[in-house]
Design a protein around this nucleic acid. Structure first.
Lengths: 210, 210, 210, 210
DNA sequence: AATGAATGAGGCTTCATTCAT
DNA sequence: CATGAATGAAGCCTCATTCAT
């Protein structure tokens, strides 16, 4: 009876810590964030973090795991969108966080930076990427817009291109001035999304006036 | 009289240090690289670094500066290429370093991560990006292939897309297994380049057999 | 009515904790053993230890107390032995614990180390030692073998010598390889005991064939 | 020319640190001595210790090494003594340090405690012990007093007994009150030494009046 | 009585930076 | 110009102890 309670409170604490860690990591990066920073942001003591995570490394890994889950949820939402364009819009705006605009972009760029030297994080991140790309490939293969695009590209090629653009836009996002709001960023992303979509899936010039 | 001598030796020392720093930064990231690491890699003493750079921050800034210059040189080479495709190939393979494959990718991803929280680095990096995008925009505007592409995109739009893909590919590059050689990475990049080029500049299906 | 019950359960808990503490202390030493280690070994929670002991210091003190009691019991057994040699054998093999050979040696050496800087432990340990030496002195004084040994040593001198050897053997015991079994250690101790006994109480060479 | 200078200054620093460590270790024990304690006692900064020792463990190991050397020097002095009795006196008073009476006793007891759980220290300490025992065995074998002792004990047996007593006296030494001076401790040790010597090497009763 | 989550001081270690040589 | 010994602040982590349940 109290078991699930305990479990959920365990999970809550972990979430609380990871939430705080995300804010800190986005603000200062993994290795300039101290455990003290995280504990402060989470409003708990330093020692308590170690009850839920073996060490700082484990917090980073858990963040990577969490990112994986979020990407999967995003993919699920994309799958349920009524059109390919809307799926892409979900994919390209997933990181646009209302209250802390660059939060996720900064985190993901740091994640890749970390992946370049931490094999465990690299594996996780690669896994996320491949899962997500496979998801988008299927989306394309099944969508009517994905047929006869007249550009000789397979769904796999298209998915790769789309992901390169999405990741590239994330990198560019961290360079945008802090003042730019989440809404502006979102608009920016949607423009690129539509442009890419038109390019990839309406290549015939049939909609020259669109 | 000895002034020019000193200046050039000054520049040499700085280069030597920055070269060492690049290797260390790519291997461990900015903030996990100690000044001792750099001095060791450069084969000099720690103290000497402080004769050429005010502090670690300054080394990072100088690295960003250096990156800017390299991008500009790359752009110059791209400008002199005989065709737009070849220009793009230069752009997409610039980071493929023979002896240390992921050297530059890792460094650039770290640079963007740093830019997300260090305003000075952000300014420098944004400047690099804009300069480079402007360069590519001009390249497209002047190239015969850039006319009448039938996709309704301005040279600016195209340049942005190209850069997003290029930056995205850089991110993906750090996830590729260490074992992958520079040649393999290069091949991978060239494939994407051609695919992108065909998409952006040969949209009519006119080269169905290409 | 329930008071005695509680008392005995109190004593049981204390014993259980001290038993666990002995294992931990022998394995890791006083100050590298955490309260958590002890609680884990005892199969109870950390907090519970504090219901029976004021703090870690108190656990150490109680261990010293316990050691005192064990020495007294050992002395009682020695007193009841039929001959001086057998008394000595009891004295010299008291620490040979079947299942965990070095358990007691390691603990006692640590106890003396602790005594060298913790006045309370020092007092307790000194008390143990003096009581034990007095006991052995009496044993010698009463034993027929203790008379006319021809070596001009008083029972007090002999007891001191015997104790120095016993304590010294304990120190040597912690250096013996882990693989050495309790039986082997016991044999080793008995050899030394007999040798010492012959030296102290059969000095005439009368038993050249013994 | 300056090389030996540098080397010797290196060795000096190490010695200085080890000297400070000995004081701290004797006062508080290995694991209750903080690196800060040592640096304070040595009059240097904490960080500097790490230029000379990889970590705290290494300081402890170096102390064990140092102890080994000191025992060897003591053995050398014992070897040059004119008589076996004087050799034994050197052996039994080696730890009597003028200014800090219990310094060495406390350290050695701690060393054995550490040896009981740190294999590296155990190896070193066992090595010291065996070397020293072998030295004493040879001393006995060569000394005229060592012949025909009439007690049927081999030089090896005698050396073992002597060492057990010596180690045991060390343990007892840490229990003596702080107020006891080095001179008093020395006297105490010499008494036991003579008593032991008489017992082992004058067994015939020939000196009944000595 | 018993638990174990929570705290925070303190220990080990690293590292940017300085400075005497 | 060049070295590297020296400093000390700061980071990671552990652990004795408390307290709400």
């Amino acid at each position: 009876m109290s078991q699930p309670q305990i479990d959920s409170s365990n999970a809550d604490r972990r979430s609380q810590i990871l939430e705080a860690a995300l804010v800190c990591f986005a603000k200062r990066g993994f290795h300039q964030t101290s455990m003290h920073d995280i504990s402060g942001e989470a409003g708990i003591s330093v020692g308590l973090i170690y009850r839920y995570f073996e060490n700082k490394e484990a917090v980073i890994s858990a963040m990577a795991d969490r990112h994986k889950e979020e990407i999967q949820q995003m993919l699920e939402r994309a799958r349920q969108a009524p059109s390919l364009l809307e799926s892409l819009e979900i994919l390209f705006t997933a990181h646009c966080c209302e209250n802390e605009p660059r939060l996720i972009s900064a985190f993901v760029v740091d994640l890749y930076a970390e992946a370049s030297r931490n094999p465990h994080v690299a594996d996780l991140t690669r896994d996320v990427l491949e899962t997500a790309m496979a998801g988008v490939r299927d989306l394309i293969a099944r969508a009517p817009e994905g047929q006869n695009t007249g550009n000789n590209l397979t769904p796999g090629d298209l998915a790769e291109l789309i992901f390169a653009v999405a990741r590239g836009m994330l990198m560019l996002d961290v360079l945008r001035p802090h003042e730019m709001t989440a809404a502006e960023r979102r608009t920016r992303q949607l423009e690129v999304t539509r442009r890419l979509w038109r390019l990839l899936f309406k290549p015939e010039g049939e909609l020259a006036y669109a």
